[in-house]
Design a protein around this nucleic acid. Structure first.
Length: 186
DNA sequence: AGACGGATTGCCT
DNA sequence: GGCAATCCGTCTA
C-alpha cells in the first residue's frame, strides 16, 4: 500500500516522512524530503514541460528522476493530479533493508553515509534514468506504512538546500533529531 | 553546433 | 567551512 500522492507537494512531503521505501528490496525509512510546486521558481517544472521534466507533468504517483551536477541521480515523486508539475524530492533515508547492497553500491561502511543526501539516496537504491516515469505502486517499488501517528509529531521544516530561487520557502521537511538527515533542521 | 549552469558530494584546510 | 569535479539538458546562433 503506497502513500497518497494526490495532494499538494508540501502535504505529500510531510506525509512521506516515516514511510519505508524499498527499491527491489533495498531501502529504508524516509527521514527528509523537499517540496517543489508548479509555480515555484526553484522547480524544474517552472519553465514549462521539456523532455527532461516530462514525468513531472505526468500522472501523480510516478517517479521523476534527473541527473544532478552531471553525476548524481535524484529520485522524486510526482504529486497533485496529472499535468501540474509538482513533485517531492527524497533527500535522505534511514537505511533498514539491504544494507550490504547499499554499502557495495556506495563504497562506504557507515550507516550514516549510505543514504543521507539526495545523490546518496539515488546511488544506494540503484536509481538511474531508466526509473524516470515508473509507477511507484508496483515493483521494483515497495512501501511500508509508518507506525501509526509516530511520524507527524516529530516533523521539523526549514529552507531547501542548494537552490538560489525562492530560497526562503520552508519547504524542506525532516524527522527532527534524526542522525540520518543530510543536514540539521531548525 | 557550442556555451553555460546546476534540487551535490567528497576531500581539502 | 571552502571549493573542485563532472556531464547532461537547455538555450542561443
Amino acid at each position: 500500500m503506497p502513500p497518497n500522492f494526490d495532494d499538494n507537494p508540501v502535504a505529500v512531503a510531510r506525509e512521506l516522512l516515516g514511510w519505508t521505501l524499498l527499491v527491489a528490496g533495498v531501502g529504508g525509512v524516509i527521514v527528509e524530503t523537499e517540496a517543489y510546486d508548479a509555480d515555484d521558481p526553484a522547480s524544474h517544472s517552472f519553465s514549462g514541460r521539456t523532455a527532461r521534466n516530462a514525468a513531472m507533468f505526468g500522472p501523480s504517483g510516478h517517479a521523476y528522476v534527473y541527473l544532478s551536477y552531471g553525476l548524481h541521480w535524484c529520485l522524486n515523486f510526482v504529486c497533485r493530479e496529472a499535468g501540474h508539475g509538482a513533485a517531492v524530492l527524497v533527500r535522505a533515508l534511514q537505511p533498514t533493508h539491504g544494507l550490504d547492497v547499499m554499502r557495495a553500491r556506495r563504497g562506504v561502511e557507515a550507516l550514516r553515509l549510505l543514504a543521507s543526501g539526495p545523490g546518496r539516496v539515488g546511488q544506494a537504491l540503484g536509481i538511474d534514468r531508466s526509473f524516470d516515469g515508473l509507477p511507484l505502486s508496483r515493483p521494483p517499488f515497495e512501501w511500508i506504512a509508518p507506525p501509526c501517528a509516530a511520524a507527524a509529531a516529530h516533523i521539523a521544516c526549514g529552507p531547501r538546500i542548494g537552490i538560489t530561487k525562492a530560497a526562503a520557502l520552508p519547504w524542506r521537511f525532516g524527522m527532527a533529531g534524526s542522525p540520518f538527515l543530510s543536514r540539521r533542521l531548525p
